[in-house]
């Protein structure tokens, strides 16, 4: 079965073609980061205005790369939520109208289910059940995953998402927006031991996270050390990254212990962080569990994970072409596939 996937929930337009036997045939991504940088954050209206100019060219490019025609599609998947309502409606409208034109079924995919299943696009693939850490600019959640649609929320952030803490701290350090990746890069040159930053909720006894206090600690440190020289800036980055990685790693270990599961899956943009991967791999080697990551290119939002999740949910496809965005949509409300 050949499924076209369209993602437009935030600031990246992604389109991909996934075949249930042949795997991922093509994927294309347009990031709007440069456009939003001047505004210091994502401007939802501008995001929507850009998505509608990108979806069809990316789709044409995917079809060309895969050597496929529209007639060969078996279904069209789109991100239905959660995300920015106006942005979601762009992908949803094109997807549903394309399905209507071709008389092919359409599937509304949960964006986080897409992320959660994206490690299944890599080799080796994790088998169910597993613990998943969804960690990005919008989310920080630990889930127990027993099958497609069988998701139990184990814990989540009570305030900022981990990626948001990266970006906000980067902004405080004068690294621009979105500065998360720049912060990580600078952290590699810093001394993580020079400053000690808090590990919020590390010993809370549950699997929840909190990162807004860490951001405040960075603000205090920046003010205390101001004006910042390059070494101090790098040292603060290193201390910040070490704190966040330690919290994420220890909570993952606690989730594995609590569920008795042996496999850990990392998904979402922060999953590309090298120190996080090193910390988790190191712990995995010592504690004898397996850790799985999506391909690096699929850590950000993308169409491939939407096409894949759509292919896993063909039986939930619709032919009525009546759709709507679901800006807020709890992952654990999804039906079992």
């Amino acid at each position: 079965m050949l499924v076209l996937g369209i993602e437009s929930s935030c600031d990246e337009t992604g389109v991909a073609l996934y075949h249930s036997e042949r795997g991922l045939l093509a994927h294309r991504l347009h990031s709007q980061i440069a456009m939003h940088t001047e505004y210091g954050g994502v401007v939802p209206e501008l995001a929507s205005r850009d998505h509608i100019r990108r979806v069809l060219p990316l789709t044409e490019s995917c079809l060309a790369e895969a050597g496929a025609t529209l007639d060969e599609l078996d279904a069209i998947a789109f991100t239905q939520g959660p995300g920015l309502a106006g942005a979601l409606l762009v992908g949803a409208s094109v997807a549903n109208a394309l399905g209507f034109a071709l008389q092919k079924p359409v599937i509304g995919v949960h964006h986080l289910e897409g992320h959660l299943l994206s490690p299944l696009l890599a080799e080796p693939r994790p088998a169910f059940p597993f613990v998943a850490l969804l960690v990005s600019g919008g989310h920080t959640q630990l889930m127990a995953v027993r099958g497609i649609g069988e998701y139990e929320l184990l814990g989540e952030t009570v305030d900022d998402a981990a990626g948001e803490a990266f970006d906000k701290s980067a902004k405080l350090l004068g690294l621009g927006y979105p500065g998360g990746p720049a912060l990580s890069k600078l952290a590699d040159q810093g001394d993580a031991k020079r400053f000690k930053l808090p590990r919020p909720m590390l010993h809370s006894g549950d699997l929840d996270f909190s990162f807004s206090g860490l951001k405040t600690a960075v603000l205090n440190l920046v003010q205390q050390q101001s004006p910042l020289d390059d070494t101090t800036r790098a040292d603060i980055c290193a201390a910040f990254q070490e704190a966040i990685v330690e919290v994420l790693t220890k909570k993952c270990l606690a989730a594995l212990k609590q569920t008795g599961m042996q496999r850990l899956v990392i998904a979402g943009g922060v999953g590309a962080n090298r120190q996080l991967r090193a910390g988790l791999d190191d712990a995995a080697a010592r504690r004898r569990y397996q850790v799985f990551y999506p391909p690096l290119a699929l850590c950000t939002d993308n169409g491939a994970m939407i096409a894949y999740a759509g292919a896993m949910r063909l039986k939930h496809a619709r032919h009525d072409y009546s759709y709507g965005a679901k800006p807020r949509w709890p992952l654990d409300s999804l039906p079992v596939a």
Binding site: E45, S48, R49, I52, V55, L56, T59, L70, A85, G86, L89, V90, G91, A92, S93, V94, A95, N96, A97, L98, G99, F100, A101, L102
Partner: peptide, 19 residues
């Protein structure tokens, strides 16, 4: 309406592309 316009344009695009 910005969102309304994009729903109409997105539908027109999807229909035209598909056909």
């Amino acid at each position: 309406s910005f969102t309304g316009l994009r729903i109409g344009c997105g539908i027109a695009q999807g229909l035209a592309f598909g056909l």
